[in-house]
Computed example of a mutant assay.
Amino acid sequence: MKWLKLNADQIRKGQVPRMTIIDFQKRKASGLPISIVTSYDAWSARIIADSDVDCILVGDSAAMITHGYSSTIPADISMMVTHIAAVRRGAPDSLIIGDLPFLSVRMGLTEAVKNIGTLIRAGANAVKLEGADGNFELITHITQSGVPVMGHIGLTPQSINVLGGYKVQGRGEAAAAKLNEDARALEESGCFAIVLEAVPSELAKRISDALIIPVIGIGAGAGADGQVLVLQDLLGLNTQFTPKFVRKFLDGARLIRKALNRYHEEVIKKAFPLEEESYE
């Protein structure tokens, strides 16, 4: 369990390797959970890369967090390329997973492979694909083509119109059985990991125990093999809505407002800039 001894300073000095795709399964076998955080730009990616967080997800949640849309559906390949490239510039050595946006792999195999290749060339090391039904052959083809794929089942935000809202998934015997079946099929298709979103914790634990590959939870309890959170959520910057599964590790919005108000006050008082902050 060498990862227990890792820290950002060691990684910066090159004393230990950054996490790779093959480390996901090793981490599950070791029992040490995996931490993933979203990023959509260079400055936040640089901070994450300087932390102990294992890897970065450039999620299609960028459509909501950065662009102000009410869902992830407006995200497209062009948007994802812009954000992935920015994150890669900010975190040149980090493991970056890029989200495949709405319908980007549903217009035929040729178009799907083209879109996936575009995200990889933009800087992603792997791609994340929402949903199971209809994706198994594609996942096998992609992984055999040299692209690591992370699955995503449970609450899949791109299917929000079908699901009827942001609701917990997997409740009831039939729904739980379907998630179990999908998880096994995604593993067999070649996924290196699976995101399980908004499902009962007991079910998430059962699925994790049944798989060799790690299950990354978001609203799936502590029984998963790792966790992923949106950076703005964990920093307390999202003041509009906080899902039950989000823990705010910082009251970021309050701190930023405080800094802005202090800046405003010192500008009004002409206390900023000082002589040492000015050019002769």
Rank of each mutant, 00 (worst) to 15 (best):
T118L: 04
I120V: 15
I120E: 12
T143W: 09
V246P: 09
G221N: 07
N180H: 15
A124M: 05
K269S: 09
Q15L: 15
Q227G: 02
D133L: 13
E280H: 08
K178L: 09
A42F: 11
I77V: 14
S278P: 02
E265T: 12
I120M: 15
N7D: 15
M64C: 06
H141R: 14
Q10D: 09
I97W: 01
Q169H: 04
T82L: 13
G117Q: 07
I116M: 15
A63G: 06
K258M: 02
G223R: 09
I97D: 00
D9L: 15
A49G: 07
I36G: 00
A271K: 12
Y279S: 07
R254H: 09
R18S: 05
A224R: 06
M1W: 01
E276A: 13
G134D: 00
S39L: 02
I120K: 15
Y166Q: 08
L32P: 00
E280T: 06
N125Q: 07
I36W: 02
T66G: 00
D233N: 12
L186P: 04
S44Y: 13
A122L: 13
V58D: 05
A75R: 02
I47H: 10
V162W: 00
N7C: 15
E197H: 04
G59W: 13
N261Y: 12
A126Y: 03
E275M: 06
S71W: 01
V162Y: 01
L4E: 01
I116Q: 10
T38M: 06
I216D: 03
M80V: 01
G68E: 06
D76S: 10
A174R: 14
G190I: 10
S70V: 11
E197C: 07
L186F: 04
L4Q: 04
I142Y: 07
D76V: 09
I21D: 05
A75L: 02
